[in-house]
Amino acid sequence: MLNIRIIPCLDVKNGRVVKGINFIDLVDAGDPVEQAKHYSENGADEICFLDISASLEERNTMINVVEKTANEVFIPLTVGGGISSINNIQSLLKAGADKVSINSAALHDPNIIKKSSEYFGNQCIVVAVDAKKNLNDWYVYSHGGTKNTGLYALDWIEKVEKLGAGEILLTSMDRDGTKSGFDIELLKKVSEFVQIPVIASGGVGKLEHFYEGVKDGKANALLAASVFHFNEISIKEVKDYLLSKKIKIRK
């Protein structure tokens, strides 16, 4: 059994953090490098940058951010948001990212998963799936959770695993931002269904939620944003708590 990974996620727009730590005296709180460094020094197992830039020009600044981060931060870095081509992936990996997270581009053309995982290795390719419950089943949503693609979540996840995805970043759109805990039912279904690691995302609000995600949801990694940024919970607290519950983590 591997250590459960704790992953803080930072929203980056036009090279600046828009949702990040706002509680400590960082020299420049908008600097993704400083924030990533802070998390790395405080026990994060990986860092995730989510690029929420609106335009292509803005998005190109991400390469620069990744390069600077790689100078200072020596844990794995995943970059997601707006990734649309193999060239895109290549430039991010070259700049120092370890993994990329693909969402819309995979829905648009699933073959990008196959091509990129064959070319770069499947450990680099994370497929982000935004799922939402509709009647009795979960569907894949696109456009930030606003559009139902009509795909059943499990069908889509089976397909992306076959195409070569290395990990699934599973976000419950029902729980995202609610702080009411992960959607354990969905998480467990997906974790037990696939061979590749599952990163749980969406809904974490208190320490117990992290534990439930691992114990009941069977997640391999836990991703959170606001609880860390607003200092409601620190990564150290999460790790101490999980350790007290006999969950394997990296101290």
Binding site: L2, N3, Q123, G166, E167, Q195, P197
Partner: peptide, 9 residues
């Protein structure tokens, strides 16, 4: 076990 062996050990 899941492969690749990916993570902290």
């Amino acid at each position: 076990l899941k492969l690749p062996h990916m993570g902290w050990n």
